[in-house]
Computed example of a mutant assay.
Amino acid sequence: MAATDFAAEIRSLRSTLDSIQAVSDPVALRTKIADLSEQASAPDLWDDPDAAQVVTSALSHSQSELERLERFGSRIDDLETLVEMATEDVAANPADVAQALDEAEAELSVIRNDLRDLEVRTLLSGEYDIREAVVTIRSGAGGVDAADFAEMLMRMYLRWAERHGYPTTVLDTSYAEEAGLKSATFEVKAPYAFGNLSVEAGTHRLVRISPFDNQGRRQTSFAAVEVIPLIETTDSVEIPENEIKVDVFRSSGPGGQSVNTTDSAVRMTHIPTGIVVSMQNEKSQIQNRAAALRVLQSRLLLQRQAEENAAKKLMAGDIKASWGDQMRSYVLHPYQMVKDLRTEYEVGNTSGVFDGEIDDFIEAGIRWRRSQDLPE
């Protein structure tokens, strides 16, 4: 195995970090932190708890971003020092030199991967990318296989969140009669959850030997994934009461005490748009109503953004009917493969993907989306 050219690798790391800093702009970040710190120290800050939460969250996030950028510079400096100490001491024990270079190799790999993650983060510059996410999965064509596929996708995303330590809350589950889910909605509560998961939105296709077909035939089924940013109190998406219809009903499916015994589930319909949101996973009708309103506001917020983008494309004369197109295939028979049809990224480890190993798909999707936004 060829020896690592540490000098070239370190130059590459510094070049990548310089590119990231050019986009992140540490000087502007420090100015922003100073302004937010001044707001956070105001004696009347907590007179408005919602506004105070926005300020303190923004301050914490900005401080973390700056610390991360500055820490990378120190880590690269430390790596360079380690390599120099190992290679310049001619009297050093060869075994000690080898051990030091092994440590340097390991640290180089870690820094390279961490920088790649940070580089992807800099591509998440959309208006709502920093938000937490609300994910809805619906079964499509394919009968019971589609319902089972919807449940597989839900587990995949929940496992992805678990791998990253992101808290999740299941808001609604509608179970199919035989197996799987008709639909499910859950929150992923982490910064940039929307930016990351938004590239997962679209139609997903599964090809496999159906476990529900007694003749063992191959079945193709579909499921739709919707990802919206979680609403914040500062977004001001006001919905007049006369535009909302609220129905209450008894929850269905597995549940604990009181979940299936009272009319606690809520179905909220936005009359002008026809958007329907159902919530049944909380025990209280009040809690389900609040959760339903939050998701409805989020969907209206995303719809407003989509309409604004469509208007801009119309003025530019560039309209592409791509919404809802199949974006990924999961093939379990006659071979094993998961392939994203937009980015062409594919892997053969289907079990790993369904267990939440989708970071490479998300990264490829983010880079692909940025390339679509760049002028030709």
Results as ranks from 00 to 15, higher is better:
207 V>N: 05
113 N>L: 11
271 I>W: 02
285 Q>W: 05
244 I>P: 04
169 T>I: 06
374 L>H: 04
275 I>N: 03
237 V>K: 02
94 P>V: 10
49 P>N: 08
84 E>P: 00
321 A>M: 07
333 H>I: 04
170 V>C: 05
154 M>N: 01
153 L>F: 06
110 V>I: 15
318 D>R: 14
111 I>A: 09
318 D>M: 07
201 A>V: 03
286 I>T: 14
215 Q>P: 00
347 V>C: 08
152 M>A: 08
330 Y>S: 06
108 L>Q: 09
257 Q>T: 14
263 D>H: 08
122 T>G: 05
109 S>R: 14
39 Q>S: 11
48 D>S: 09
278 S>C: 14
80 E>L: 03
223 A>L: 02
221 S>V: 06
369 R>M: 11
64 S>P: 00
270 H>I: 08
112 R>N: 13
302 L>S: 09
257 Q>A: 13
162 E>P: 00
118 L>E: 14
66 L>Y: 08
15 S>W: 01
146 A>Y: 01
114 D>P: 04
80 E>F: 03
42 A>E: 11
47 D>F: 02
311 A>W: 00
218 R>K: 11
332 L>V: 03
131 R>N: 15
107 E>N: 12
360 D>S: 13
310 A>T: 10
355 D>E: 15
233 T>H: 12
312 K>S: 11
350 T>G: 04
321 A>F: 04
115 L>F: 07
329 S>T: 15
236 S>C: 01
30 R>W: 01
199 V>A: 09
268 M>A: 11
45 L>G: 09
149 F>P: 04
251 S>P: 10
304 R>Y: 00
81 T>D: 12
59 L>W: 05
106 A>R: 13
267 R>N: 09
180 G>P: 06
60 S>L: 06
33 I>C: 07
18 D>A: 15
286 I>V: 14
238 E>D: 15
306 A>S: 12
210 S>K: 05
25 D>G: 06
211 P>N: 10
332 L>P: 02
190 A>H: 13
360 D>T: 12
184 A>C: 15
78 D>C: 01
146 A>T: 03
131 R>S: 14
28 A>I: 02
291 A>P: 01
153 L>K: 06
245 K>F: 04
108 L>C: 12
114 D>M: 07
321 A>Q: 12
72 F>Q: 06
293 L>C: 01
19 S>E: 14
102 D>R: 13
169 T>H: 12
66 L>H: 07
169 T>W: 00
56 T>S: 11
97 V>I: 15
7 A>Y: 05
153 L>H: 04
336 Q>F: 02
149 F>A: 08
368 W>H: 15
157 Y>D: 03
138 R>T: 13
91 A>V: 02
229 P>Y: 04
196 N>V: 02
47 D>A: 11
220 T>M: 01
212 F>D: 09
207 V>K: 05
130 I>W: 08
340 D>A: 08
93 N>I: 02
335 Y>R: 04
151 E>P: 01
122 T>Q: 14
29 L>R: 14
47 D>V: 02
93 N>A: 09
156 M>I: 06
120 V>M: 14
341 L>C: 03
165 G>N: 09
76 I>L: 10
92 A>C: 04
45 L>Q: 08
296 L>V: 08
307 E>Q: 14
